[in-house]
């Protein structure tokens, strides 16, 4: 199993996958910083204010879409050049194959998150030269939203496994972001609607309109819901391989 995961990273060698991993978080920070700069009059909470702006586009779209690109890339290698036949003939359980894909994409997601935080820190510390200390909450949000992002990894991994195209799953991800936004913003069906789609969970986990800490219970609900989606899409992927053989 460890070999499978190591192999996933070995396969990413000399690939262009690092470009979106670095570039998209960078653009998110650029957008956010621009917004912050233009609205300094209203945004007076320094690190927190910058975070609300940075996480706005990133949390709504960019993060999920970068994950979708990574998942598409990872599966395209298997769809191309007849690798699917070899993967299924490997002496591993299908669950091991699916889970190692998920773990590798989740680690890529962690890298995306890490790049975002680095750029965020650099801009806050050296461009805007905030006087306050780097807020600990941001680290917590970063970790929690990464954990939540694993459900998006599982979802996108499933879509990209089923769809051979590179761009269609990314397009689907874009649509899911809108649906997620709907789930997040539409409170008509109750406050808890946001826990019922991975994309709205991701938005929730990166507070962009309220720079305040969550209650422990909220974190708990987010993580449980994220875990639920992760398990669901992982099982769906494994079942789908078994069905595909028919």
């Amino acid at each position: 199993m460890l070999e499978l995961i190591k192999t996933e990273f070995f396969k990413m060698r000399r690939s262009g996958i690092w470009i979106p991993i670095v570039f998209i978080p960078m653009v998110s920070v650029l957008f956010g910083s621009g917004n912050y700069y233009l609205n300094r009059e209203i945004l007076q909470s320094q690190w927190y204010s910058l975070w609300t702006q940075v996480s706005l586009f990133y949390g709504l779209f960019f993060y999920a879409i970068t994950i979708a690109i990574a998942a598409s890339y990872s599966w395209r290698m298997e769809h191309k050049d007849n690798n699917w036949n070899r993967i299924l003939a490997l002496p591993y359980d299908y669950s091991q194959i699916i889970i190692s894909k998920l773990i590798s994409i989740s680690i890529v997601s962690l890298c995306i998150q890490f790049t975002l935080l680095i750029f965020y820190y650099l801009v806050g510390e050296f461009v805007f030269q905030f006087q306050l200390d780097f807020p600990r909450e941001v680290i917590i949000w970063g970790v929690v939203s990464w954990i939540v992002s694993i459900s998006i990894c599982a979802l996108q991994s499933f879509i990209s496994m089923k769809i051979k195209s590179f761009s269609v799953p990314v397009g689907i991800s874009f649509c899911l972001c809108f649906i997620g936004l709907g789930f997040y913003a539409f409170k008509g069906l109750g406050e808890n609607l946001t826990y019922f789609s991975p994309n709205s969970l991701l938005i929730t986990s990166m507070p962009s309109n309220k720079a305040e800490t969550f209650e422990v219970l909220e974190y708990f609900k987010m993580i449980i819901s994220g875990l639920g989606f992760t398990i669901f899409f992982t099982c769906l992927s494994i079942m789908s391989i078994k069905k595909q053989k028919v």
Partner: peptide, 11 residues
């Protein structure tokens, strides 16, 4: 096994 042509990572 080698089924339906060789499998490889071209990059």
């Amino acid at each position: 096994s080698l089924i339906e042509g060789p499998s490889y990572y071209s990059h």
